[in-house]
């Protein structure tokens, strides 16, 4: 175990994967000479050279498509989209091509591709630079979407993603880069499609991912101390495929669920999880599933407005209150 930042965990993993497999290369805007807009790739150009660390012009559709084409011929590109907001420019290549090629051509040609990109608001970057667009991709069969919340998960999931034969959207979050956490030693991987119970509890389940999972864990610990509430926190980690089993089992145990996400509420991860829970755990629900999500506005610049638009710990606590948990429950075996 070593403590490191989320950023360091990503950096180290990229470096290891570049060392491990000659077919792995990095490609994206400003990842080489500029060392990455968020410095995830700092030093890698120097170490691996321009063949393995490829700076691109500003043309998301072009270089994402290029990466897909390279993957079709067996390379394992790791694309960096500077922020997820710019991924809109590459939608055609990701959705119409990366996600389709294996299926549409009858299983002849896999596309082993990773697209790393940070999302999230809270940095006063305003409407076009603060979005959470991962559900666009989680919606599409043929793509995988992971969204780790801790340095350890970032490392384990990035390794898995690079070694996966499918296009994987690897969602980071600007506010997570400087967070720290214990990271296991060694070449460990975390399976895609496996949620993690970050904290066990029996009164309520909070389901979340990425940065909000960290907030949820904090709130859960606080409420346990202050109110003796036993809250289970599940970090789904993968949005596609989604680990129904872990989520459903948790809610079967606690009978109450809050889904906590930074993204807009409509048609989001919360909607998907709520639908899944009512389908698979209906008879275990003791209260309506709550969604705590971002305000449905383009994120404003001004600090008070931005803070009002982003989901917060306070809103999460309010949702816990709405569930009206009155007593500590006895768990029947």
């Amino acid at each position: 175990m070593a403590e490191m930042t989320y950023r360091q965990a990503l950096h180290d993993t990229l470096r290891e994967e570049l060392q491990r497999d000659e077919n792995v290369f990095l490609i994206g805007e400003e990842i080489g000479r500029f060392e990455g807009s968020y410095k995830i790739t700092a030093g890698l150009l120097q170490e691996f050279g321009p063949k393995r660390v490829v700076d691109t012009p500003i043309c998301e559709n072009g270089f994402v498509g290029l990466a897909i084409g390279a993957a079709m011929l067996g390379l394992r590109p790791i694309v960096e989209i500077m922020t997820i907001n710019f991924i809109a420019l590459a939608m055609d290549e990701i959705v119409n091509h990366a996600a389709k090629i294996y299926y549409m051509f009858g299983g002849q040609c896999p596309v082993p591709l990773v697209i790393r990109t940070p999302g999230g608001g809270g940095q006063q970057l305003s409407a076009t630079h603060s979005q959470n667009l991962e559900v666009w991709f989680a919606h599409v069969p043929g793509l995988k979407v992971v969204a780790p919340s801790t340095p350890a998960d970032a490392r384990g999931l990035l390794r898995t993603a690079v070694r996966d034969d499918n296009p994987v959207l690897f969602l980071e979050n600007l506010a997570l880069y400087n967070t720290r956490g214990e990271v296991p030693e060694g070449d460990y991987t975390i399976p895609i499609g496996k949620a993690q119970v970050m904290k066990e509890g029996h009164d309520l389940t909070i389901i979340s991912y990425s940065r909000m999972a960290v907030v949820a864990l904090d709130v859960a610990r606080r409420l346990e101390q202050e109110r003796q509430l036993s809250i289970e926190v599940v970090d789904v980690r993968s949005l596609r495929p989604l680990d129904h089993e872990t989520v459903v089992n948790s809610v079967k145990k606690t009978n109450r669920a809050i889904i906590f996400e930074e993204d807009w509420r409509s048609y989001g991860v919360g909607a998907e999880l709520a639908a899944t829970l009512q389908e698979e755990a209906f008879d275990y629900l003791d209260a309506p599933i709550q969604r705590v999500a971002g305000a449905e506005v383009p994120l404003p610049y001004s600090k008070p407005l931005e803070q009002a638009a982003l989901p917060s710990a306070r809103q999460l606590v309010e949702a816990v209150d709405r569930l009206a948990i009155r007593k500590r429950r006895v768990v029947y075996a």
Binding site: N255, F282, D283, Y284, L285, D286, A287, R322, A324, R326
Partner: peptide
Amino acid sequence: SPLARRLAEEHNIDLRQIRGSGP
């Protein structure tokens, strides 16, 4: 709640006998 309904069914409780305390 769905859970309450299921428990009521399992224990043969008619929900009409019960006054709800939830929201």
